[in-house]
Amino acid sequence: MLDQFFNLAIMAKALPLVLTGLGMTLLICAVVIPLGALGGLLAALGSVSESRALRWLTIGFIDFFRAVPPLVLLIFIYAGLPFAGISMSPFMAVTIGFFLNNSAYFAEIFRAGLLSVPKGQVEAARSTGLGQRDTLIWVTLPQATRNVLPDLLSNVVEVVKLTSLASVVSLGEMLHAAGMVRSITYNASPLVLAAGIYLLLLWPVIRLIGRFERRLAS
């Protein structure tokens, strides 16, 4: 039984391939997290803007992509869009799919952050002659971000975990690599190895979130 899950020999053999997969996982994260955060920030700004049209548009975007399951979105982009003549590489499909999904979640968090900054802050800034853009950059955004920092980091953790979905479009990230070794060796140990690496990767971030939460609460 232990042999099926904690077979060190198989883990050792699987390690190079799983680490290559980890590289891909990290690459996806490195592309998708900054893009998603930026897209989310822009959508959040749109959702609290003075323009009703822009508000509706961005809130529609946020609601839609929060409602669509990311797996469905990913398969649709990779396997559905070719029926409309739009084909792309697995990496591209993953990037676009996660960007859309991710932006919506980041947007919701940034939106909450922006709304948490009291109106008096903007008034104080504007009364000293700061323009709209400077007020946003130097007064509103730093406070908004700080107020939702734990949620932003939690979302980053979610995104890292979400990248395992990329295995369904055969992008060689960590789960995909571990799954391949599992099917060759008929042994679950590579999956346990991958799970262990996820844990090592994310646990420090989760601890960090806890610390930020306590600091914000005090």
Binding site: P118, G120, Q121, E123, A124, A125, R126, S127, T128, G129, L130, G131, V139, P142, Q143, R146
Partner: peptide, 20 residues
Amino acid sequence: LNKMRQRIGIVFQSFNLYPH
């Protein structure tokens, strides 16, 4: 307006200092 506002200081009941 941004230029003119520098000539008019205002102090609020709730201070509105930037906490960060």
